[in-house]
């Protein structure tokens, strides 16, 4: 469904230019969750912004359902941005504090369906809110009236609003408390199943990726070092870096008695 071919992107750092993404090719199948694992500075954020069409690659191309987006003029790209929606890490920074939830979600809906107005729009916003487990009564509130987990639900609703082809979730739970994390992960999984979403799930938390992703891509220093079926990569890592990454994860013992 989505295919990246030989993406390269460099950033200038002083005099030298540094590869943020170096010759990355990958594809995401419709309806799957692809986990992208890597540490800060490995290029995963740059890569996600290239997929989002917010950054242009130096070379290489992004194909969506066979259309080469990289060959399109800038004006057409803006329209295609709706096909990619993102859920950000920090739910405190990703919602406009001066807009009510209704305004935020309404705007996102109207980008896809400009004719939506009045009661119909309100109804659609309500449906979205209920889809992410919030009461539609709350749509006239401002972001600061919600907790972190609730804001992340709203951010997810905004990402769903324009009916995107692909959702990029960039560390969507790492800023949340443990008990809230699992609520959001469940929500993402259920939405993915019910709506048949295609998702790129970016995280440094390997236990989360293992739980959620169908396939995994491990990135290190701008390159993909390993990819494959999620369980396979975790249970039989081939590359030294993947093994090192797995070894560094703190582990929970299994509790002897029933929990």
């Amino acid at each position: 469904m989505l295919e990246l071919k030989n993406i390269r992107k460099t950033f200038r750092k002083g005099k030298e230019s540094v590869y943020a993404v170096n010759d990355v090719s990958l594809n995401i199948q419709a309806g799957e969750i692809l986990g992208l694992v890597g540490e800060s500075g490995c290029g995963k954020s740059t890569l996600s912004r290239i997929i989002m069409q917010l950054l242009l690659p130096d070379s290489g191309s992004v194909h969506l359902n066979g259309t080469n987006l990289s060959a399109l003029p800038l004006s057409a790209i803006r329209h295609h941005r709706l096909d990619f929606q993102m859920v950000f890490q920090d739910p405190y920074a990703s919602l406009n504090p001066r807009l009510t939830i209704f305004s935020t979600l309404g705007e996102a809906l109207q980008q896809r369906h400009p004719q939506l107005k009045g009661d119909e729009l309100r109804q659609r916003v309500g449906t979205l809110l209920e889809m992410v487990g919030l009461s539609s009564r709350l749509m006239q509130r401002y972001p600061h009236e919600f907790s972190g987990g609730q804001r992340q639900r709203i951010a997810i609703a905004r990402a769903l609003a324009p009916e995107p082809r692909i959702i990029i979730a960039d560390e969507p739970v790492s800023a949340l408390d443990v008990s809230i994390q699992s609520q959001i992960l469940n929500l993402l999984r259920h939405l993915q199943k019910d709506l048949g979403l295609t998702m790129l799930f970016i995280s440094h938390d390997l236990s989360v990726v293992r739980y959620l992703a169908d396939r995994i891509v491990v990135m290190y220093r701008g390159k993909i070092v390993e990819s494959g079926d999620a369980e396979e990569v975790f249970d039989h890592p081939k590359e030294a870096y993947t093994r090192q990454l797995l070894a560094a994860v703190p582990k929970l013992p299994s509790v002897v008695g029933p929990v």
């Binding site: 609730q150 008990s179 992960l185 236990s207 739980y211």
Partner: peptide, 21 residues
């Protein structure tokens, strides 16, 4: 807290989560 950790779950199984806030 222990149970809601994704590492203690099999894939595809619903994560246990502490409801509410």
């Amino acid at each position: 807290l222990y149970k809601s950790n994704p590492g203690t779950h099999r894939k595809g199984e619903d994560l246990y989560s502490i409801p509410g806030l």
